[in-house]
Computed example of a mutant assay.
Amino acid sequence: MKTVILIPARYASTRYPGKPLVKLTQPDGSQKSLIQMSYEAANSAKGADAVYVTTDDERIADAARAFGADVIMTSEDCANGTERCSEAMKNANLEADIIVNLQGDAPLTPPWFVEALIEAVKNDPNVGMATPVLRCDAQTYAHFTEDRRNGRVGGTTAVFNAQNDALYFSKEVLPYVDPGKMPEPLPVFHHVGVYAYRPDALAAYGTWSAGPLESLEGLEQLRFLENGHPIRCVEVDGKGRVFWELNNPEDVARIESVLKA
């Protein structure tokens, strides 16, 4: 099965304009842009036949081409990464059995997360879309709750049923855990912003309008749930790595500290 990874990136982020081009200090003291780190993360995953950066911004396109990436241009009308991937698939007439959306703000995404998604879709013809979830450790949970106390939007949490199909995703920390009765392991799962789609599911997404839940939460994947399309949650193992997305300027220092560690 042919698998293509798309990295959607936009310059005009509401919370962090120019985010894909932000430079992060590497362990050797050099600097790389967020989009280059995401591109390198995508290329480290096994099973992908091609990797593209897809954007509407020439600054990002130029930067991507400079470090050797192929680029698919899209319009400025894409409201989120999934819309951008859907349009890119159409614009480039991509022929693929599985399309992976590795968002450009997740440079710490381990390759085995992507590989687990590809396998989940390959192994079950009923899975039209899959996304990874990672059980929160104490450090990540503390980051989540600290962000919410300070009015910042941090990571996204996921709740799912016994068949591992998603029930809901939220920027709130779900489910609620009584601070005085912290269970072990924590029943809170961090949703990792990576998606694998079959082409028909991705094409259908581009025909739907955003629903009330997506609009309230600002989470693109809720559009699938609001239209009755299941999302398979694939639990992955962090293998001791701290996973953190770059959502706010404060996250730069967090990610750099993880890289040093």
Rank of each mutant, 00 (worst) to 15 (best):
90 K>W: 08
90 K>A: 12
90 K>T: 14
91 N>T: 14
92 A>K: 07
93 N>A: 13
94 L>I: 14
94 L>H: 11
95 E>K: 14
96 A>R: 11
97 D>I: 04
97 D>T: 08
98 I>A: 04
99 I>E: 05
99 I>W: 06
100 V>Y: 07
101 N>K: 05
101 N>S: 13
102 L>I: 03
103 Q>I: 12
104 G>T: 06
104 G>F: 13
104 G>L: 00
105 D>V: 00
106 A>C: 08
106 A>E: 10
107 P>D: 08
107 P>T: 11
108 L>R: 08
108 L>M: 08
108 L>Q: 07
110 P>R: 04
110 P>N: 03
110 P>D: 04
111 P>N: 14
112 W>F: 15
114 V>H: 01
115 E>M: 10
116 A>T: 09
116 A>K: 12
118 I>K: 12
118 I>W: 05
118 I>N: 09
118 I>P: 10
118 I>H: 09
119 E>G: 03
119 E>C: 05
119 E>H: 10
120 A>W: 01
120 A>C: 06
120 A>Y: 03
121 V>A: 04
121 V>L: 15
121 V>S: 10
123 N>T: 02
124 D>W: 08
124 D>Q: 09
124 D>M: 10
126 N>F: 11
126 N>E: 14
127 V>L: 06
128 G>Q: 03
130 A>L: 04
130 A>E: 05
131 T>H: 08
131 T>K: 12
131 T>N: 06
132 P>S: 06
132 P>N: 09
133 V>I: 15
134 L>I: 05
135 R>M: 15
136 C>S: 15
137 D>C: 11
137 D>G: 15
138 A>K: 10
138 A>N: 09
138 A>L: 15
139 Q>C: 01
139 Q>H: 13
139 Q>N: 11
140 T>R: 12
140 T>C: 06
141 Y>R: 01
141 Y>H: 10
141 Y>Q: 05
142 A>Q: 07
142 A>S: 15
142 A>K: 11
143 H>N: 14
145 T>Q: 06
146 E>D: 13
148 R>Y: 12
149 R>H: 05
149 R>L: 05
149 R>P: 00
150 N>P: 00
150 N>W: 06
153 V>A: 02
154 G>P: 02
154 G>C: 01
154 G>F: 02
154 G>N: 03
155 G>A: 05
155 G>I: 01
155 G>W: 04
155 G>Y: 08
158 A>P: 05
158 A>Q: 02
159 V>T: 14
159 V>M: 15
159 V>P: 00
160 F>H: 07
160 F>I: 01
162 A>F: 03
163 Q>A: 15
163 Q>H: 06
163 Q>M: 07
163 Q>Y: 09
165 D>I: 01
166 A>K: 00
166 A>N: 00
166 A>C: 09
167 L>E: 13
168 Y>N: 12
168 Y>H: 13
168 Y>C: 04
170 S>C: 07
171 K>E: 05
172 E>Y: 12
172 E>D: 15
173 V>D: 01
173 V>F: 08
174 L>K: 09
175 P>A: 04
176 Y>V: 01
177 V>N: 07
178 D>E: 10
178 D>N: 13
178 D>A: 03
179 P>S: 04
179 P>G: 04
179 P>M: 02
180 G>K: 01
182 M>R: 07
182 M>Y: 03
182 M>P: 00
183 P>L: 03
183 P>C: 01
183 P>R: 08
